[in-house]
Design a protein around this nucleic acid. Structure first.
Lengths: 325, 325
DNA sequence: CCCCCTTGCTTTAACGATTAAGCAAGTTAG
DNA sequence: CTAACTTGCTTAATCGTTAAAGCAAGGGGG
């Protein structure tokens, strides 16, 4: 590995001048700067991040903590984050907070020990990450007071609920996955908030809820809104078992626009997060905090987008009533 | 941040002794070592990875390069890798080689610049990562001469083909996603290798292949084997459009046992990778290489596992022929 | 003509750890 | 009793970079 010292010897100048020329700081003549740059390239000089980190106290590394790396959203977040980080010459060190809040604390500690300049944390459901001595951006949901940026989950819930109302459904089921998740609670709160009080609606949770929801359809409900595409797919399978057709007999919606939701049958109406925008803002926020600025937009949410596909349609009663006319 | 120097001053000994006591090297009395350890804990001492990296030339960081972080397998690889790495006190820096071979080279360079001790690379389809001056483990497939560890994709193909044969299918379709992918080519080679020569089989590729495969079913084929659950789901949707039922009229198989394959309808017969084992071996190999040892098992494959679900069954001709008896 | 400022470079001291070499005291062997 | 070794510590150099401070030479203002 060629160091600044070797370039200095090679060119007969001091290491300080090399450093100044390469970083653009200090005072070095244009001509010498150019020569140094050229020579450094020729020699294949690559600055030692370790030395730089030691001297400046900055590693140029961001820590990313996720509750479960197998979360289907993780890849998309990781990818956008990684691109945005590249642009700013930052690296991304990942850590899995696997299941527990304790593991989350452990993960934070490990990343801190590695000297990360900042942290991006998607908290465990129902937890608040411990305070840390480095800048942190929290990706959760608006109702979390520590939230730095997130999708407007409540708004997304409202979007899908209004869609279901608009096409004529009046007897609905809402199905959530995990009551502990603030995100899912916000989604459901958004749905409920968009429904007038004369709409009949049941809310179920978890695995057991899948059957309850299907049963409710047999008792007259015409639409099931879930908080996740994965749950929607499960419901779809249960409905199939009971020979209830989607969307003819019941409309079905998901959340998050996962890979399979456009290719399953029927293609699933869902609500998409603008993951790019969220990741990009997260990096903006954390970068600003690292530079000591007050980040603009901290705490704001990013609108969600309704993706209407074939799993939702006008309730069959309306159709049959309409047809005779 | 408390440094070794401060502990040294605090306790009236030299920094070398602190370092020796804490790392277990050199010669320090048991008693003093214990005292130093205690005091270091009290003061909340955390070694500076930057200083250590600078002096020793080792960062304790592994680079993970994937062709597409949104690849559904990525989360599982990342998670297991991250757990195994934790055990060995290693960190994982991620990089996306987004699409092109050039980007892959770029990603490698970025990670190298950060001083990673080793690299784990899932190469871009049809490419070989450039040679790098650090230990590298390649996760691809057996037919890649540079492969360090991977699932036995050909073996997996053979497993699923034999299953289809066993239950009585004689006219088959194989459907691949991308001809450029060595992984998919190996899977298909494995399928074909397991089929006797009197079996009728067509091989199609890509988007267009989905319709061709469905058409072939209408022309008498009774089973479709795909190289990915995602493709299988697409086929399933196309079959539904043509009112061909799975598995009554045609059996369908996927690959990779993705999140949705157990909950779609019908639940998909597929072939699962032992991702844990692969990730764990990858870390073993890279760790061995970093320590200068020759890794055991390099180049070996990990067996795949057939997961039989409802999407495959005895061909209907056999059933109808059998029933009258 | 002298003082002061600017420019362009060098000197020097860090950052926090590791590690080879050194040294004093105590131990063992012959 | 002395030479040689062991034990337990210290000294000092080093990894590669940055940055404050210093200094010589040239230029401009009064």
């Amino acid at each position: 590995m060629v160091s600044i010292k070797q370039i200095a010897n090679d060119m007969g100048v001091s290491t300080a001048t090399i450093s100044n020329a390469l970083t653009g700081k200090g005072r070095v003549s244009q001509e010498l700067t150019a020569r140094i740059r050229t020579r450094a390239d020729e020699l294949g000089y690559r600055p030692s991040t370790a030395a730089r980190a030691l001297k400046t106290g900055q590693t140029g590394i961001l820590g990313l903590v996720m509750p479960d790396l197998t979360n289907p959203l993780f890849p998309r977040i990781a990818q956008t984050l990684s691109m945005e980080a590249d642009k700013r010459k930052l690296g991304i060190l990942i850590a899995d907070s696997r299941g527990s809040a304790d593991e989350q604390t452990e993960a934070l500690r490990r990343l801190m020990d590695r000297g990360v300049d900042g942290l991006i944390v998607v908290p465990q459901k129902g937890t608040t990450p411990d305070p840390v001595p480095v800048p942190i951006a929290v990706l959760n949901t608006a109702s979390d007071p520590g939230n730095s940026v997130s999708a407007d989950h409540a708004g997304g819930g409202a979007l899908v609920a209004r869609h279901i109302l608009d096409i004529g459904h009046r007897k609905l089921v809402i199905l959530g996955g995990d009551k502990v998740s603030e995100v899912q609670r916000d989604r459901i709160a958004g749905m409920r908030g968009a429904l007038p009080s004369d709409i009949e609606v049941d809310v179920f949770w978890g695995e057991a809820g899948v059957e309850l929801a299907a049963a409710k359809v047999q008792a007259g409900a015409t639409a099931i809104m879930t908080t996740s595409d994965l749950i929607a797919l499960q419901v779809r399978t249960e409905l199939m078992r009971r020979q209830i057709s989607v969307p003819d007999q019941v409309s079905l919606t998901g959340f998050d626009n996962m890979s399979f939701s456009s290719i399953m049958h029927p293609a699933l109406t869902t609500v998409a997060q603008n993951v790019d925008e969220i990741a990009s803002r997260a990096i903006d926020i954390i970068s600003a905090k690292i530079s000591g600025d007050t980040p603009a937009q901290e705490g704001e949410t990013v609108p969600m987008r309704l993706v209407v596909r074939q799993s939702t349609s006008i309730p069959s009663q309306l159709l049959t009533r309409r047809r005779p006319q």
